[in-house]
């Protein structure tokens, strides 16, 4: 019983760690997307892209 609880605890801990990793990765990716829009529009204006 104790062993099963232990393995469940480990599994839950692993889930939490996975989720924390996913959260971090998502946040960084979204931050990079925002940065790309910021830099992209300035570059567009610098290089004189016109419609």
């Amino acid at each position: 019983m104790a062993e099963r609880m232990g393995s469940e605890g480990t599994a839950a801990g692993q889930d939490d760690r996975d989720r924390a990793r996913r959260v971090r990765r998502n946040a960084i990716v979204l931050g990079l997307v925002a940065l790309a829009f910021y830099v992209g529009f300035i570059l567009m204006a610098v290089t004189g892209v016109r419609g």
Binding site: L30, A34, F37, Y38, V39, F41, I42, A45
Partner: peptide, 24 residues
């Protein structure tokens, strides 16, 4: 996430036009 950086880019260009001699 898509458009607030665009505003930030636009006002940064205003800032450099005002203080750093650019001509965006």
């Amino acid at each position: 996430i898509a458009v607030m950086p665009v505003l930030a880019g636009a006002v940064t260009m205003l800032l450099t036009d005002h203080f750093f001699g650019t001509s965006f």
